[in-house]
Each structure stands twice: as C-alpha cells, then as structure tokens.
C-alpha cells in the first residue's frame, strides 16, 4: 500500500497552519461573543440611555470605528506598557477585536432597537407590561431578528481581521503561514492555502448564521 507522503514544505506548512488555525479560532470565538455582548450593551444604551450615557458610548463607538484596527492593537500592545499595563499578545488581540467589533455591533443593535414601531410598545404597555417586560418579551426578540443580518456580517469581518493579530506577535493562521512563506520563500502557495483556510472558516460561519436565521424566521416579519 502506497502511503501519501507530503514534501517537507507542505508538511511544515500544514503543521504551521493547523497550529495557527487553532489560535485563530481561539481569537475569533471569544472576540465574536465579547463583541456581540458589548454591541448589545452599547447599542441599548445608545438607543435608550440617558443623554450623558449616550454621549459616552457614542464617543467610544466613534473612536473605535474612526481609527484603524492596527493602530488600536498597537496602542494596546505597545502603548499600554508605558502606563505600566502589560498585555500578552493574545490578550491584546482579543481585547482589541472585542472593542472594535463591539463598536460596529452597537450600530446594528441600536438601529434594530430604534426600528421597532411605537405601536409595539403601546400594545405591550396597554396590557400591563412593565418597561422591563416590554423590552424582554417584545422589543428584544424583534430587535434580534432585525439585527441578525448586520451582526452576522460583522462576525464574518471579524474572522478576516483576526489576521491582524500577528502584528502584535500573536501567531495565528496568517502569522504562522507568513513564517513558513519567508522560510521557504514560497509566498503564492502559502497565501493561497491561507486563503482557503479563511474561506472555509467564513463558509462555516455563514452556514451557522443561515441556520440561526432559519430558526428565528417568522413569516412576513420586518417586511412592513
């Protein structure tokens, strides 16, 4: 029986990329969850908070949407030590991704919350719902359905911009691949394989999001 053997280059490449893939997933999952959580909190404050709270959260969103992610990561990893705060490459990357993703997610959440018609609040209030019950049982379930497309899109962006983690020396998929590419000087093949890895990750995320959308689907919802 002939055993398929890989050349040393592909052996090293797949070894490195699989290691990088694990790190990428370890970056993406908490960052996506944290980003959605921050987005929900920040979006809710921006939609319903007191004016001073709204100003603070709006400033946060403007800052993180208005500056490049690379700069944010550099500040977290190389800048904070000047203030005596040292972050590991992994922590700096996850915190940076969460804050950046959360700023974008807050826009989707805010838009979804503000798009709920006044009649939905009135209908609930007229039945004796408290403000909290109205939010929990009527507004949030509807807002989730309106925000899901935007939030899902942001998670897909996050999968791709997680490749910036290697800039702060967190060796994920792109970083591991780049090391091999430099070692063997075979950039085209390495980055083509990296692209396939990302394509697979994004395709899986899209499948999961489609599944969630299907579960949340309600006939005719959001079409009027």
């Amino acid at each position: 029986m002939q055993v398929l053997t890989l050349s040393p280059f592909y052996h090293d490449l797949l070894d490195a990329l699989n290691r990088g893939l694990l790190m990428s997933v370890a970056l993406i999952v908490p960052s996506a969850c944290g980003g959605v959580l921050i987005g929900i909190l920040a979006g809710t404050v921006r939609a319903f908070g007191r004016p001073w709270m709204r100003s603070i959260v709006a400033a946060y969103a403007a800052l993180f949407r208005g500056t490049p992610l690379v700069v944010q990561l550099f500040v977290l990893y190389y800048g904070l030590p000047n203030l005596g705060l040292y972050l590991s490459p992994y922590s700096a990357a996850v915190i940076g991704f969460m804050l950046c993703s959360g700023a974008y997610q807050s826009e989707y959440v805010r838009g979804a919350l503000l798009s709920i018609k006044k009649g939905q609040y009135l209908g609930a209030q007229a039945l004796g719902f408290s403000a909290w019950q109205t939010l929990q049982s009527i507004i949030v379930p509807q807002a989730i359905r309106r925000a899901i497309h935007g939030c899902g899109n942001e998670i897909i962006y996050l999968i791709k911009y997680s490749s910036l983690a290697y800039i702060v020396t967190c060796m994920e998929l792109t970083g591991e691949g780049k090391t091999i590419a430099t070692e063997y000087f075979r950039f085209t093949e390495v980055f083509a394989v990296i692209a396939l890895y990302y394509l697979t990750l994004v395709s899986l995320a899209m499948l999961a999001l489609k599944k969630i959308e299907k579960i949340l689907f309600i006939p005719g919802f959001g079409r009027n």
Binding site: G119, Q120, G123, I138, R145, F221, G222
Partner: peptide, 13 residues
C-alpha cells in the same frame, strides 16, 4: 382597562 387601537398593535413576532 383593555385598549383596542386603530392600528391593532399586535406583536409582529
């Protein structure tokens, strides 16, 4: 005190 609205205000979801 029940209330019926002109626009129904049923919960869309």
């Amino acid at each position: 005190v029940g209330m019926i609205f002109q626009d129904f205000n049923l919960f869309d979801h």
